[in-house]
Design a protein around this nucleic acid. Structure first.
Length: 467
RNA sequence: GCGGGCGUAGCUUAGCCCGGUUAAAAGCGCCGCCCUGUCACGGCGGAGAACGUGGGUUCAAAUCCCAUCGCCCGCGCCA
């Protein structure tokens, strides 16, 4: 018999059907046993009675989290026994056949609560059990809905979803890279992408004009409540556009996304406020102001854009000018002398997107004129040849007809955490890592065999103990 | 790398300041028995803890000290 979902049973009252799932709770009253059967659609009550003695004997042995399949008649519950708390509360199933697919040990923690009270270390170690809880399942399903909406929206707008490489090149600027040794090129390494930045710009040179990707990004830095070593961003790049085209697109996506998937949420201000960096720093003392009117209202969403960031900032550690965003951000002036002479005064065509005081991400109009790029690299203290070597592919590509282009990258995990009122992005990621980037469930990073290392031409040198 | 918090049955905690007496306590869970309408079922009974690890102080350490490990929050870092 073909299995139906628990939620579908209400449509088949009086019929004999098969359902499958996990035993959630057992309420035994001696001569009648109620079992809440959980599947991906929800809970269904099974009622065992000793009418069938053999079946009843087996039912008495059932324990929480065993996986079973049952066939039996779906009955409408008597009025007094309807449970309004569950979606299938007006029906129940009287099993005639019971199959035990697998038994289960007692779980290390309860999965029937939201789970915040449970030691997160345990939750991460047994993530496959943690994900059985309703809250996390819901978070993952909301995540899927958001991604689906964004895909459909952008494809309708003429965007092409393109996968860029995960094995790519280490970039000297920015965060630490995760490195992957290349077996066929002894001594050489791939790096995992910190973002698809350069690929998406190259796609503009390729003439795709409108690119997007739900992109996994990797940064080998210490994690936080809002940071993971690997995270997902909505990555967008467009050709022949100005700043407003990007901001208007983002505004439209998020307004319609909220309207469709989170109708209970209210957006504080439409159109989203656009605040200059200077004004934000003066007025709110930071560049990601929380513009909510009532910070206790979990349904309020205050989006805003921060624009006109400075192009350069003085790096105290390296004692040189550094790009606030990255060197391919387009300065707001074409005056090369001005860029070189007064870098601190130069503003950039750069924008950030902020929600309830959380930075969701940012982007920029890209710099594509060689003389401007050279001036920027010069301010940053790079020799012309060095800069060209580091970003050779971009410089070369730009020699073959490059359209003016711009883009943005927005953190999906952060957006979901905010909109689902979660304190940490770990709550919206299926298999997150700890603060020091370990996966407690898989127990990685882990050592590898000598043979593997040999094949990769890698030797582990134990560092000498510090004094 | 730095600062702060936490670590006691399977889970959540009390006890820790002010060291000593039920053989470290409770709720939930687990196991057994009873119970025909529950839905966080109920009732009775039971098992379950080298108090993260190592060392020290003391007649005596879950409790005080030192070290170490793990998790969380933040700083650094995150173009």
């Amino acid at each position: 018999m073909k299995r139906i979902l628990n939620i579908e049973t209400t449509k088949y009252v009086g019929k004999k059907m098969k359902v499958c799932g996990w035993v959630q709770t057992i309420r035994s009253h001696g001569k009648i046993i109620f079992i809440d059967l959980r599947d991906r659609s929800g809970i269904l009550q099974l009622v065992f009675t000793p009418k069938d003695e053999k079946l009843y004997e087996v039912a008495q042995k059932l324990r929480p989290e065993w996986v079973v399949g049952v066939e039996g008649k779906i009955k409408e519950r008597p009025k007094a026994m309807v449970n309004p708390k569950i979606k299938t509360g007006n029906v129940e199933l009287e099993p005639e056949k019971l199959e035990i697919f697998s038994k289960a040990k007692t779980l290390p923690f309860s999965i029937e609560t939201p789970g915040y009270e449970i030691n997160e270390e345990k939750r991460l170690k047994y993530r496959y059990l943690d994900l059985r809880r309703e809250r996390l399942k819901k978070n993952l399903m909301v995540r899927q809905k958001v991604i689906q909406f964004i895909r459909e929206f952008l494809i309708k707008e003429g965007f092409v979803e393109i996968e860029t490489p995960i094995l790519t090149k280490s970039t000297p600027e920015g965060a630490r890279d995760f490195l992957v040794p290349a077996r066929l090129q002894p001594g050489k390494f791939y790096a995992l992408p910190q973002s698809p930045q350069q690929y998406k710009q190259l796609l503009m040179v390729a003439g795709l004009e409108r690119y997007f990707q739900i992109a996994r990004c990797f940064r080998d830095e210490d994690a936080r409540a809002d940071r993971q070593a690997e995270f997902t961003q909505l990555d967008i790049e467009m050709s022949f556009v100005e700043q407003d085209d990007i901001l208007n697109l983002i505004e439209k996506i998020y307004i319609e996304l909220v309207k469709k998937i989170f109708p209970e949420k209210k957006i504080t201000k439409i159109p989203f406020p656009t605040i200059s960096y200077k004004e934000a720093m003066a007025k709110y003392k930071n560049d990601r102001p929380d513009l909510r009117k009532n910070k206790n209202d979990s349904n309020e969403l205050a989006f805003c854009f921060i624009v006109d960031f400075p192009m350069f900032e003085w790096s105290k550690t390296e004692k040189r000018w550094d790009a606030v965003h990255h060197p391919f951000t387009r300065p707001q002036t074409d005056n090369i002398n001005e860029i070189k002479k007064n870098p601190e005064k130069i503003l950039a065509h750069q924008y950030d997107f902020v929600l309830n005081g959380e930075e969701l991400g940012g982007g920029s109009l890209r710099s594509f004129k060689p003389e401007i790029l050279e001036a920027v690299f010069e301010v940053m203290g790079h020799k012309k040849s060095e800069a060209k070597k580091k970003f050779q592919h971009l410089f070369s590509a730009f020699e073959y007809g490059v359209p003016p282009h711009a883009g943005i990258a927005l953190g999906l995990d952060r957006f979901l955490a905010v909109i689902l009122n979660e304190q940490s992005i770990r709550e919206v990621i299926a298999f997150p890592k700890t603060g020091d980037n370990r996966d407690l469930m898989m127990d990685v990073p882990a050592e590898v065999t000598k043979e593997q290392l040999k094949e990769l031409h890698i030797k582990i040198v134990k560092s000498v103990n510090k004094q």
